[in-house]
Design a protein around this nucleic acid. Structure first.
Length: 283
DNA sequence: GTTGAGCGTT
């Protein structure tokens, strides 16, 4: 029975996932099982943990078999102290089976009248306070360098974000596309945010990936830079010398093109010019 | 050894 969350999702056909937040990093599924099991039938408990360290992330997912029981657990366990920490129990929304919940299943099983029992939840205000201040989030945000290449973000971003930066970095701020809607929007906005991000990533990923795949893989250029933008001309460092960078040179020296240079990216010109293994000539 | 927002896996 202690294999909760170790063998993957057993059966999410008719189970309701509860999100347990604010739990200690040492709290395990086994610790939560008895607590939640007291209020209903717990189908499975999953605690996401960091793949790098393997430690719990601080929240767990408790899957209940019945909605009423799950709701009860939320009301009873939400705000209780576990392992010396106040935990937050609420229904999962962004889970894989979140769609079912949105379908109205939960809504049907949970009338508003029952919710009125939620009189005790001081922690809620506390959390809200944090959000209002959002001072610590900013601090952390600054710590993280967001100058990551979009190319890298396309591929690793998804995985990385989910593992370490996702919770550290503020999800409300959009470095790429600042939108008032995403400023403080919460709840449904998240879905849109994810969709938009994916859409963008897909676009970029496709352009870059296909480009390399189409041409010569690995021979394209030692420096995976973005396509040559006209911005290069505004480089103040560039010498005004006509012989240094001339459109003619591009036409004449076709071999200079990185794409065409798929034969030998390095040593080609040097070899031709400097048969010597040493570049004394250049020096 | 720490942290503390936050939505998930074989």
């Amino acid at each position: 029975m202690s294999h909760f969350g170790r063998s993957g999702p057993p059966d999410i056909t008719d189970t309701y996932s509860l999100l347990v937040l604010n739990i200690t990093f040492r709290t395990t599924a086994d610790d939560l099982y008895p607590l939640f099991h007291k209020y209903g039938k717990v189908v499975d408990i999953f605690i996401p943990r960091d793949r790098r360290t393997g430690d719990s992330r601080g929240f767990a997912f408790v899957r209940y078999k019945y909605a009423d029981e799950a709701q009860k657990a939320v009301e009873r366990l939400d705000g209780t102290m576990v392992d010396g920490r106040e935990i937050t129990v609420q229904f999962a929304k962004y889970g894989p089976n979140a769609e079912r919940i949105h379908k109205g299943k939960i809504s049907e099983a949970f009338p508003k009248s029952r919710y009125r029992s939620r009189s005790r939840s001081p922690r809620r205000r506390h959390r809200d306070d944090y959000r209002d201040k959002d001072y610590r989030r900013r601090s952390r945000s600054r710590s993280r360098s967001r100058s990551l290449d979009k190319n890298d973000r396309d591929r690793r971003g998804r995985e990385r974000e989910r593992e370490r930066d996702h919770r550290r970095r503020s999800r409300s701020i959009s470095p790429r596309r600042p939108s008032p809607d995403y400023s403080k929007g919460r709840g449904r906005g998240r879905y849109d945010d994810e969709r938009r991000s994916r859409s963008l990533s897909r676009s970029r990923s496709r352009g870059r990936s296909r480009s390399v795949d189409s041409g010569s893989p690995g021979r394209r250029s030692p420096s995976p830079r973005r396509s040559p933008s006209p911005r290069r001309s505004l480089s103040p460092r560039r010498s005004p010398s006509p012989r240094e960078e001339s459109p003619e040179r591009n036409g004449n020296g076709v071999g200079r093109s990185p794409t065409s240079r798929s034969v030998s990216p390095r040593g080609r010109p040097a070899d031709s010019r400097s048969p010597s293994p040493q570049n004394s000539d250049d020096k």
